[in-house]
């Protein structure tokens, strides 16, 4: 295990990245797909509106982007803090 200070900094960096990702996760699905749909009803997408697209396609694509971003970013953070495998 890495020493205490560097592992604290590492964990804080991880929590920060997770928080950002979770906010995007929430906005893409619960936000744009459900709660904000009435506000966005003016933006037409193929016979319906943006909220419908996010609920049936967009949210899944955002989830995919988030997981790959997190894996890529954490590999870099691991190396920066010297805790990679």
């Amino acid at each position: 295990m890495a020493d205490k200070t560097s592992s604290n900094a590492y964990w804080a960096a991880n929590i920060r990245i997770i928080t950002i990702c979770m906010v995007i996760w929430f906005v893409a699905s619960f936000g744009l797909g459900i709660l904000l749909r009435p506000m966005l009803s003016g933006i037409a997408v193929g016979g319906t509106d943006l909220g419908f697209w996010f609920a049936q396609q967009g949210s899944i694509l955002v989830f995919l982007g988030l997981i790959f971003f997190y894996a890529w970013k954490m590999n870099k953070v691991d190396a920066e803090h010297g805790v990679e495998e």
């Binding site: 979770m22 996760w25 609920a55 049936q56 949210s59 899944i60 894996a71």
Partner: peptide
């Protein structure tokens, strides 16, 4: 019923990050 689409994929974000 988009709930199934978002619910059954969004859980993977929780799995991957948490």
């Amino acid at each position: 019923n988009s709930t199934f689409l978002m619910g059954w994929t969004g859980g993977y974000v929780l799995l991957a990050l948490l």
